[in-house]
Amino acid sequence: SCLAVRSIQYSFLPKWQPPFITSLAPEDRCHLNGLGLRDGKIRYVTALGQSDEAAGWRKRKKDGGVVMDTTTNEILLDGLAMPHSPRWYDDKLWVLESGAGTIGHVDIANRAYTPIAEVPGFTRGLDFCGPVAFVGLSQVRESAVFSGIPITERKQERTCGVWAIHIQTGQILGFVKFEDAVQEIFAVRVVPGIRYPDLVNHDTKLLDGSFILPDADLLRVPDAYRNAST
């Protein structure tokens, strides 16, 4: 339960720990899971609990989650259900209360969380573009890890995808839903200027015979080759 950097000489170099963690041990004591920058420097983190014992965060996963300031070691907000993805954007600290399926912002002065939207999935992964937040949703199953939290107690189908939400009104602007193979989203990132992104495919046979050409040149390729993958 620490922030660390990679090292050539060591397995990792610890840089910061929550003040309630008393040692370095591979015990998942607080499930430190989210990191946010402010002015280009690490500033905010989320954890699922303030425990100093192995897997102790699980005892209060419904309301034990916290948001912390790494520069002051302050707990800015507590009482959250499995928070993730702290982000500083538009002069506000945003966070996902994943266990409740919400996105909201933190009133740091008053230690309060204001959700702006609730969505049908475990919220994890957050980025922004203009007035729009892009939120990842995971289709979590009711298991030992996820039982007893608000989202699994609802009588509502949970889904997986990416939701677009207006940050001023909370309106759902649209979504991309994964129906089959993908059930969990761990991170979301806006890639400016890219309209037709592609996925890396690890099928070496397919890659060896795949080529990308300008549209005008593609017209000169025989149909048998252009349609080989269909």
Rank of each mutant, 00 (worst) to 15 (best):
K15C: 11
L199P: 00
R60V: 06
R58I: 05
M68I: 15
I42Q: 01
T230H: 12
E184Q: 09
T204L: 15
Q17F: 04
A187D: 15
D78H: 11
A228F: 12
G209V: 03
H202R: 04
G125C: 09
F128A: 03
D215C: 08
F12Y: 14
A117M: 10
P120R: 00
L48Q: 11
W57Y: 14
L80F: 06
F134W: 12
Q156T: 12
T102Q: 09
T102H: 05
L126C: 11
D180Q: 13
A54P: 03
R60A: 14
I108H: 07
A109R: 07
S1R: 01
P131L: 08
Q9P: 00
P214R: 04
M68S: 14
D217R: 09
A133G: 08
R226E: 11
W163F: 09
A4Y: 06
K59F: 02
H202G: 03
A25N: 08
L35H: 10
P14S: 10
L207S: 11
I108C: 10
S11K: 12
P150T: 10
D28Y: 11
R29Q: 13
A144Q: 13
E27P: 02
D198F: 13
T46P: 04
A54M: 12
V135C: 09
L37A: 08
G79V: 02
I116C: 02
T22N: 12
A181C: 07
L80C: 08
A144R: 12
Y225C: 02
L77Q: 08
D91L: 09
P131R: 15
D91S: 15
E153R: 10
R6T: 10
W88A: 07
V190G: 09
G148Y: 02
G170Q: 05
A224V: 15
L96C: 15
F186D: 13
P19R: 15
R38Q: 15
V132C: 11
V200T: 09
V45M: 13
R43M: 06
G193R: 07
I185G: 09
W94Q: 02
D215I: 11
A216E: 12
T102K: 10
W88T: 06
